[in-house]
Design a protein around this nucleic acid. Structure first.
Length: 213
DNA sequence: AACTCGGGGCA
DNA sequence: TGCCCAGAGTT
């Protein structure tokens, strides 16, 4: 375990030099808007989400605004990002739940967030650290894949990997580490054809060791 | 555990 | 132009 933490620290150092700027894409005005944007981000990218949120939040910004919308109306606003019908339903239902059960405020606990429609582990974690600045380690497919290739985790499911990563990194670094692993996963440690030859983490990587040495 | 939703990006 | 990618819900 000590050895793993040393490795984690070195990887963190290399990645933080390579990706120095923290993600600012999730810079929304209210927890509710961040929640909506995060629900929208399922199965797509922040870039895509940002294309629709600026216009969207000009027109609708509070849970009350979304709770009254027809699915078709919202769907039309977000149709360029895919899965728009189901996402519209999730957001409208969640808005109503926030009003009806959570007194108009986005819930702050993981378990309550999970009760919302369209909110799973990853989305709930993002809301906790991005909207409420509390420790969470969102595990999306990039984090899952990259941390397993590196040998930072060997869990078979995201829950297990999340547990292992939380053991490995200091609490106040979870959010940043999540971003670094995502960047690295998108740009280098890609799902299909990873650019191992240009990867600065070769020395620490189980995947590289097993496939190229 | 497999299937569904739906676009954009890239070979 | 067809294949791959990215979460959550449903069956």
């Amino acid at each position: 375990m000590q050895l793993q933490q040393e490795k984690a620290k070195k990887i963190s150092g290399i990645l933080s030099e390579k990706y120095p700027v923290p993600e600012t894409a999730l810079d929304y005005k209210t927890p509710f808007q961040l929640l909506v944007a995060t629900i929208l981000s399922a199965q797509t990218t922040d870039t895509q989400v940002n294309k629709v949120t600026s216009d969207l939040f000009e027109k609708y910004s509070r849970p009350q605004d979304f709770a009254e919308l027809e699915v078709e109306t919202l769907s039309e606003e977000i149709k360029s990002i895919g899965l728009h019908r189901s996402k519209s339903e999730y957001i409208i239902k969640s808005s109503r739940m926030i009003i009806d059960i959570f007194e108009g405020e986005v819930p702050r606990s993981f378990d309550d967030l999970l009760k919302l429609n369209g909110v799973g582990r990853k989305t709930a974690s993002v809301v906790i650290y991005a909207a409420f600045s509390r420790p969470a380690f969102p595990v999306d497919t990039h984090v899952f894949r990259v941390s397993r290739r590196l040998g930072l985790a060997d869990g078979k499911n995201p829950e297990k990997v999340e547990e292992q990563l939380k053991e490995l990194f200091p609490e106040d670094d979870w959010g940043d580490m999540h971003h670094r692993l995502i960047y690295h996963g998108r740009e280098v440690c890609k799902a299909r054809s990873p650019d191992c030859s240009s990867c600065q983490l070769q020395d620490f990587c189980d995947y590289f060791k097993n496939n190229f040495k």
